[in-house]
Amino acid sequence: MSYFFQLVVSGIVVGSIYALSALGFVLIYKSSRVLNIAHGQIIAAGAFITYALTVWAGLSIYLSFLLSILITFFLAMSVERIFLRRLIGEPIISVIMVTIGLMSIIDGLVYLTPFGTENFSFPEFLPKTPISFGGVSISWTQLVGVIITTMLIGGFSWFFKRSTIGVSMRAVSDDQLASMSVGISVPKVFGLAWATAGLSAAAAGSIIGNITGLNFDTLHAFGITVFPVVILGGLDSIIGAVVAGIIMGLIQQFAAGYLDGHWGLYGTADVLPYIILLIILLFKPHGLFGIHEIERV
């Protein structure tokens, strides 16, 4: 039974990180209807910036974490400014393909650095002995990761519910024309959505990097796993992203814990989310919390 609870704990850890990274994805989709295919690459970039600041520049890890999410905030904002701003009004298909191009560009840039081929791991800065109670253990990095993630998700929810900018972002996602007429600058909101997405992606990336080590493939694969999460939660729902993230984390951990090694299967955690995705698309395409569009074509 403690094996089960162990899986639950690690599922929640992984799931909360999924939730955080899905949050950024949903933000961009909600405000500008763009699927950001390059999200995984931004996650990876954020993790690498944190590592570079910690190890190569010798800053304290907390400071470099803050700096990294700040840098990614502005990086994502400038990506929007340079590449996507001039595509406003173009068919949505070409905007999505620009993000595919961006993904390829960031891939290339990362391969130019040592991060593309080598594996790194963050220096230990927390106690090594895991906390355990009743046979279930959780390491300090995981615990701190979950705490930071929860704080960030809470902060974002507050931001959308209460702050003026958050409200204007929700207004734009609801109706662009109407929000323009009440004086909201739509392009600015788009830029801000990208910037916030970059921020959350960098935070997620740094936390994953601390837990699993820095490997480009695993990090940007995280960005693709975000797709099943957001589809399960409903593409335009922030609560959906959080709930579905944790569900997906649990599913993955259970698959890895109970399916792998039986019937000649292994690595099921990598494929199960996509199978679930296809099934959801067939039977409940708007996910758990997504808005049902009545239009059926």
Binding site: F83, R86, L87, E90, S94, M97, V98, I100, G101, L102, M103, S104, I105, I106, D107, G108, L109, Y111, L112, P114, G116, T117
Partner: peptide, 25 residues
């Protein structure tokens, strides 16, 4: 030590996609 071709290929493809979409869709 790194293999430049693995870095340059995705970089150029990405640039080509983005530039074409922006300037000659």
């Amino acid at each position: 030590t790194m293999n430049l071709a693995t870095a340059l290929k995705p970089l150029t493809f990405g640039l080509v996609i983005v530039l074409f979409l922006m300037f000659e869709p």
